[in-house]
Each structure stands twice: as C-alpha cells, then as structure tokens.
Design a protein around this nucleic acid. Structure first.
Lengths: 151, 151
DNA sequence: GAAAATTAGTTAGCATAGCTAACTATATTG
DNA sequence: CAATATAGTTAGCTATGCTAACTAATTTTC
C-alpha cells in the first residue's frame, strides 16, 4: 500500500520526463552542431578547451575526469588541440609522469569565438520568445546542470 | 529604470541563456552516455529507432530530417539497425525510389529497454525533486525541442 | 514521347571521438 | 632493490558526422 505523500511524489512520471530531457538535449546539440570546419576543432576538443580556459590548467587525467571520458580518448583530444596550437603542455617538476595542460592565448580567443558562433543561431531563436519563456529556459538550464551532477 | 514589460523584450540576454542551455545539454548527455555495448546499438541508432517507434514508419529522407543528419549518415545508421534486425524496410509502391522504414517488434522491445537503461539514473535523481520542478523541466524539454527546430 | 532535370538513396573516402588492451616511464612500497 | 601502482601513449576496433560522386526512378520540358 502507498504511504502518504510528502513533497517527493514522482507523480509526473520521472522516467518519461528524463526521457524527454534526454531527447531534447540530443536535438538541441544537433541543432547547434556545426562541424566548425573553419577551425578544424570538433565538439570534444572545444569542450575540453573550455575546461582549460574557464577552470584553469589541468593534468590529462583530471581533464579526462572533468570531461567524463577515458584517458586514451583525452590523450587524442589533447593531441589535436596541441597540433592546432590551442593548448600547451609541460611535464611537472614534482611528478615527471604528469602533464600540466593549459590553453594558449590563441586557444582562449578561439574558444570565445567558437562558442559564440555555435550558440548564436539558438540565441536568435530565443530572442523571438516572450521573456517569461526565456526565463523559464534559463532556470531549466541550471536545473539540468545540477541534475547532471546528481544534484 | 525598468520599462514596463511587453512580451518580446530580450531582457535576459539571449546569448547567455543559449550558452547555458548548450552547456547543460552537453553535461546531461555525458551523464547519460553509456556505450550500450551489450546491444551494439549506438546513440544515433537508438535515437533514430525511437523516431520509428514513437512517430511511426518513415522514409529515409524523413528520418534524416527528423534526426537532423544528412542522408548518407542516416543511410548507414539504418544499415546498422537492419543488420541488428531492429528495423525492416521495403520499397513503396507509389514511388520506387522511396523506402518505408519501420521498427520490428524486436526493435521496439530493445528501444524501451535501452532508453530505460540510459535515462534511469537521471530519473532516479528526478524523483528526489519536488513535483513542481519536475514539471518545470518537462515543459522546458518541450520548449527546447521546439527551439531545436527553429520554433 | 524522348531528353533533361530533379529526387531518393547508396557508396566511397575522410575526420572526430568513444572504447579496451597492451605498452612505456616514473613513483611508491615492501 | 624488487614488486606494484600510477600517468600517459599507442594500436586497433566501432560509431557517427561530413562531402562528392554515383545509380535508379520520377517529373518536367520541349
């Protein structure tokens, strides 16, 4: 039998909502996806670069953890970023197995430009929406971020 | 001083909101990402299959448009789904260039299982949220979907 | 009605990005 | 000092994006 309900009622079927969020995230990223052909920087590289730009220098393992990918995957992503001159690395003094990865000035510039380019068509569509819906989406974005971290 | 608000004021910086939505979508998908190794069905295949299951049979071009990928990409995704016995196709009578693609019973079953597996940890987190926030997220998911299609 | 243009899908070839397994090099521990 | 653990890399697989170039069928044009 059902216990009395407090605030945690899963009334609006959690699985269905999770599913719709998942699907909406896929579609939103597809819309935003531009192969960024001019810079030759793919989405994974851009995302890793943004960690280095906004959160500061990191080791390869830390970067892999932050991006939730395996070390070999990050190794290749970083190789691409270095080939493009967007990231610099050097071995640490304390532990010569470790790398210290940081964005170059060019990397930082490119990141800002690319982010803006990727997201601006979305922003254009948003500008056609009434203010309250935009605000609703802004709040939802924050909620989704927390959700992604398990709250 | 604040002017009285009409409906189309782009007050809450559209670019910033777009950026946060983009970032939230990336993080949510990383959280959900499971390579679904057991079934050998990747995320693009699963997503295409879900269109066939929930929206009904489609031609290859329609499916590509729905998934926002190019026809050659969808052609290969469908090849994978057919190899796995999850989708069936036949040439239409009216136009013999066209394909009618539909999910098999096995495809429908697998979709439900895989979707549930992928999003269930998200759903578990959602169940800890108050009902009104879940409802807010549900509405946001719909808005995001419309947004992805340019409204 | 035949030639031309358009449309639906496929094939080939390239790149990014996930993974695991197996390797090297360095650090730590017994 | 030997054994073990840790940080990254390399090799090799798969999936998924793309464009260009192709085949086959339909529609349009003359």
């Amino acid at each position: 039998m059902e216990p009395e309900k407090g605030k945690q009622i899963p009334e609006p079927d959690a699985l269905a909502v999770a599913d719709r969020l998942h699907s909406a995230a896929i579609h939103l990223l597809r819309r935003v996806r531009t192969r960024d052909t001019e810079s030759g920087v793919g989405p994974a590289q851009l995302s890793a670069l943004s960690v280095l730009v906004f959160a500061g220098p990191r080791s390869l393992g830390e970067l892999a953890a932050a991006e939730q990918v395996r070390p070999p995957t990050m190794s290749r992503i970083v190789a691409g970023l270095m080939r493009a001159g967007l990231v610099r690395r050097h071995v640490t003094k304390e532990d010569r197995r470790r790398l210290r990865l940081e964005a170059t000035a060019r990397g930082t510039d490119l990141l800002w430009a690319a982010r803006k380019r990727r997201v601006e068509s979305l922003a254009a569509t948003l500008r056609q929406l009434p203010t309250d819906q935009v605000e609703q989406l802004r709040q939802a974005a924050e909620l989704m971020d927390q959700l992604s971290r398990g709250m």
